[in-house]
């Protein structure tokens, strides 16, 4: 149970701070003495947090599903021909800055949540895809040979052998993807999506460092919480599937 304590504690701090930011008014007034308004009030932090999180969760869910499915298809006998293409796309796509994706998506999808969701899915897909390929390709061929040779159907080999063995690496890919996307989602505020990037953008526009800090602190905390949640998930996975820390 001790495993889940850090993410739980961080989550409490995150929610508490989002709900009770005005309590810290004296601190922010000391940082930014020349402004009348030092606590961002064009939307509650809890709402922004919730919306930010929703964007990340939806994009992670869609991205994971698409990337794992793609990775599995590319490693099946029928999809082998696509493997080099898919792994190249996975590596090259990562060099594309998310802002560029946003700029290209806005004319097509308009302002608001849609283009940022699109960018997040596209961008978050790649680390997961890369890790799915690495995880599946990294399985000892003798293990696969034995599984097939002893009478498992292709689906049984995938579900009972390959995914449990590759799962740890896939999970690490999802962790990277989600952590990156928590930061990237904030950019959505520039095109009208409501995220924790709102106070940051507003602060930058008005020269209000206090606003910037409030947004940045909450985004940072959210990233830390999520990361420690994945840390706990990965450890739980290890206990379940690779008790000696052994990979195939």
């Amino acid at each position: 149970m001790r495993l889940w304590l850090p993410p739980a504690l961080l989550a409490v701090v995150l929610c508490g701070l989002s709900a009770a930011m005005p309590v810290l008014e004296p601190l922010f007034r000391w940082i930014q003495p020349d402004k009348q308004q030092v606590i961002y009030d064009r939307g509650s932090f809890l709402f922004l947090l919730q919306n930010h999180l929703l964007l990340v969760v939806i994009s992670a869910a869609v991205g994971t599903f698409a990337a794992v499915a793609g990775g599995i298809l590319a490693t099946r006998p029928a999809g082998r021909d696509f493997l080099p293409l898919v792994s190249q796309v996975a590596s090259i796509g990562q060099t594309f800055p998310p802002v560029a994706v946003l700029a290209l998506a806005v004319p097509v999808l308009g302002f608001g949540e849609a283009p940022i969701l699109f960018a997040l899915i596209l961008y978050g897909l790649l680390p997961i895809l890369r890790n799915t390929l690495a995880g599946l390709e990294g399985i000892n061929p003798a293990v696969r040979e034995a599984a097939t040779g002893m009478g498992m159907s292709p689906l049984q080999v995938l579900v009972r052998v390959e995914l449990p063995l590759a799962g740890r690496i896939i999970l690490a890919g999802i962790r990277t993807s989600v952590t990156i996307n928590i930061a990237t989602a904030a950019i959505g505020s520039t095109i009208g999506a409501r995220t924790l990037g709102d106070p940051v953008i507003a602060g930058l526009v008005n020269g209000n460092t206090a606003y910037v800090l409030q947004g940045a602190i909450l985004i940072g905390l959210l990233a830390l919480t999520t990361d420690s949640l994945f840390e706990a998930l990965e450890r739980t996975w290890d206990r379940r599937f690779s008790p000696q820390g052994a990979m195939a």
């Binding site: 003798a142 034995a146 159907s153 599937f241």
Partner: peptide, 29 residues
Amino acid sequence: QQLRLNMGYVIQGTGLFPHWTVARNIAMV
């Protein structure tokens, strides 16, 4: 699959499933 279930198969380097215990490995078929 039916054909293979009725044929024991042993290979070099064992191909044991690293995420399963010895008992679970033996119990596979």
